[in-house]
């Protein structure tokens, strides 16, 4: 069953710069999708557009979630529909403690504390969110919040960058277990594909210049990117255009 359907989506920034075009995507319940692409290809913009951040203006197309049009909805409304985003670079908010956000988002405080301990974040509860957190600590705090929101669709932006092997294993396992247990879906952005060792994903997409240029078996795509870089994708795109 289709959970998320993106049709002909075109997105511009407030300054009218085109950042996404002709985006078409289907994600079924229980499916984990991997997004590849070089820096600046539009991967993060796609996730931020799905969650409805205001600087990403949808100028064409639509996004359907569970059959419902969420194209014009605000981030808090989209979150309530069941989509949650783990940021690649979350902002630091002085004076707002991690525990305050957890108490706002979590539905079950016992489970929340269990997850806090599993992700080794107990001593960060009293700290201002993301302030002086290391890269790995930020990732763990993001995944913690993501899971506590209990979404049907997880948007995960580079969970494997700047994270040590042990933490990555832990984060990957948490995401995979959640998807399996809740029959949820996920879109995960990765560069090196390390997270693929810990999550079960079959389908991959490659983005270039704000467009999805190919999709297919995730392992094949990763092998090709590792072997040939995105050079071949670019050539491939040019061939398609011709």
């Amino acid at each position: 069953m289709t959970l998320l359907k993106i049709e002909n989506l075109e997105v511009k920034t407030e300054e009218k710069k085109e950042i996404l075009k002709n985006i078409n995507m289907n994600i079924n319940s229980g499916e984990i999708i991997i997004l590849f692409g070089p820096n600046g290809s539009g991967k993060t913009s796609l996730l931020k557009s799905i969650i409805g951040l205001p600087n990403y203006k949808k100028t064409k197309g639509r996004i359907l979630f569970n059959g419902k049009d969420i194209t014009e909805k605000k981030p808090n409304e989209i979150q309530k529909e069941g989509i949650a985003l783990a940021f690649q670079n979350p902002p630091e908010i002085k004076g707002v403690k991690l525990k305050e956000i957890i108490s706002i988002i979590s539905k079950n405080s016992v489970e929340a504390m269990h997850a806090v301990e599993e992700l080794k974040l107990k001593k960060f509860l009293e700290r201002d969110i993301n302030v002086n957190f290391s890269g790995g600590e930020k990732k763990r705090a993001e995944i913690l919040q993501l899971l506590l929101m209990e979404p049907k669709l997880l948007l995960v932006d580079e969970p494997d960058s700047g994270v040590d092997i042990e933490s990555m294993k832990l984060l990957g396992k948490k995401i995979n277990d959640y998807v399996k247990k809740k029959k949820a879906s996920a879109i995960i952005i990765t560069h090196q594909g390390e997270i693929l060792k810990h999550v079960k994903a079959k389908k991959g997409y490659v983005m270039l210049d704000g467009e999805i240029i190919c999709s297919g078996n995730v392992k094949k795509i990763l092998r090709s990117i590792k072997k040939n870089g995105y050079e071949r994708c670019m050539n491939c795109k040019m061939l398609i255009k011709k």
Partner: peptide, 25 residues
């Protein structure tokens, strides 16, 4: 704005996100 956006993705309305940031500040 990034702080407001972030808290809105956590389910807070713009007004509540702003209040939380200010009361932290």
């Amino acid at each position: 704005q990034k702080e407001i956006d972030y808290l809105m993705t956590r389910g807070l309305s713009k007004e509540n996100a702003t209040n939380l940031i200010i009361s932290g500040f």
